[in-house]
Computed example of a mutant assay.
Amino acid sequence: MQHMAIRVGTASWTDPTLLASGWYPPGTDSAEQRLAYYASKFPLVEVDATYYHPPAEQTARLWAERTPPGFLFNVKAFSLLTGHPTRTAAIYQDLRPETPKQRVYPKDLEPQAYEDVWTRFLSALDPLADAGKLGALLFQFPPWFTIRRSNKDFLVEVKRRCSPLPVAVELRHHSWFDGDNAAETLDFLRRHELPYVAVDMPQGHRESVPPVLAATAGLAMMRFHGHSGRWASKDIHEKFGYEYSADELRTWAPKLRELATHAEQTHALMNNCYRDYAQRNAAQLTQLLSA
């Protein structure tokens, strides 16, 4: 397959520690200016906020309007749609279950309300899709989403629900990659043309999966979570506060080039979002890939 350019980006452009780091030039104070500056440096960004709160269609329209042609947004699926516990207050007001619970799961909603969450979440992204700027919907599954028939069925259902919007799947339980399961998992994803998201992350934790690089569809994706010694921390900046060394990135560049030969497009995202670590590493990786 023809080698295609690898898009490199980061998993945030609005993190408070990034704003405080001095990465944005003085005077880049508005949301519009920041996104425009970011998009002048990178061709791709991941939207993390949509995991916590469904986006408004107007927001997606502004993202499309404020970025140059060819710029892509990978949008993280709302937590409820991946089976994570979801803040009740984050659900559309008229669809919220009547419960004193702070967090709910899909089963806590009326079946029709759950369907409506899907519909509204996806339709809010229409402006991005219409502008050709939706890279993929990233479905990051919880650590208890293990390899089993019902979960495989759900992956196929996710693709069907989102069609024609592209999806990508990140699995967070080692069972998908234990022994012979790795080949089975990748075969399954290929059969259903579901893009698999490879990850680089600390090993030895409940949600650790090995860095298996594989293209299972036209889109290949790699996310770099870093190797923080504080991975188990509840503090998101301790968890992701890791800067890759030039040597580490140098070992990844040929692997990503090889991955890109098996896909029509390849995305590499730095998710080590603390201060400007992700932005600096993304710039270094871009340089290494173009060398």
Rank of each mutant, 00 (worst) to 15 (best):
V117S: 06
P16T: 10
R148M: 05
W144F: 07
T88G: 00
P97S: 07
Y24E: 07
T88F: 02
M270D: 12
N281Y: 11
L171R: 02
D29Q: 07
K107C: 10
Q102K: 15
A77S: 11
K234V: 12
W144S: 04
G218I: 13
G70S: 10
K76G: 00
W118L: 06
Q284T: 14
E57M: 10
V212T: 14
N181A: 14
G70L: 11
L194T: 06
T59S: 13
R191S: 11
K239A: 07
Y277D: 04
E258Y: 07
H237G: 00
E157A: 13
F188K: 05
E184P: 00
R103L: 09
T50N: 12
P211R: 01
V209I: 14
L80I: 14
S208F: 06
L289M: 07
D108N: 15
R87F: 05
D29C: 05
F73C: 06
T14N: 14
F121Q: 02
S79R: 10
Y37H: 13
S175K: 11
E98Q: 15
F139K: 01
A182M: 13
E115P: 01
T82F: 00
T266R: 11
Q33G: 08
R148G: 02
P100W: 11
R87I: 00
I147N: 09
V158M: 10
F240N: 00
L128G: 03
P210D: 05
L62T: 01
V169N: 00
L125W: 11
W252N: 01
P142Y: 02
R206W: 04
L171G: 05
L72K: 11
K107D: 14
K239W: 07
R206Q: 09
A183C: 01
E238Q: 14
S79V: 04
A214M: 12
T216S: 03
W13R: 09
R230L: 14
F145K: 01
P16G: 09
M201T: 04
R172S: 11
D48R: 08
A268W: 03
Q279V: 08
L72T: 04
R149S: 13
T286N: 15
R280C: 07
H262V: 03
T10R: 06
Q93K: 12
V156Q: 14
P111R: 04
D108Q: 12
E248I: 02
T17F: 04
L137R: 02
H205Y: 15
L81Y: 03
P254F: 12
S21N: 08
K41W: 10
S175V: 09
F121E: 04
Q284C: 05
E157W: 13
V156K: 14
E184S: 13
G135K: 09
I236L: 11
L249E: 03
R275N: 11
R250V: 01
K239D: 06
A214F: 04
L165R: 14
E258Q: 13
T88P: 02
W144H: 13
P143R: 08
P254M: 07
L137M: 08
D187A: 15
F188A: 05
D180Y: 05
Y92W: 06
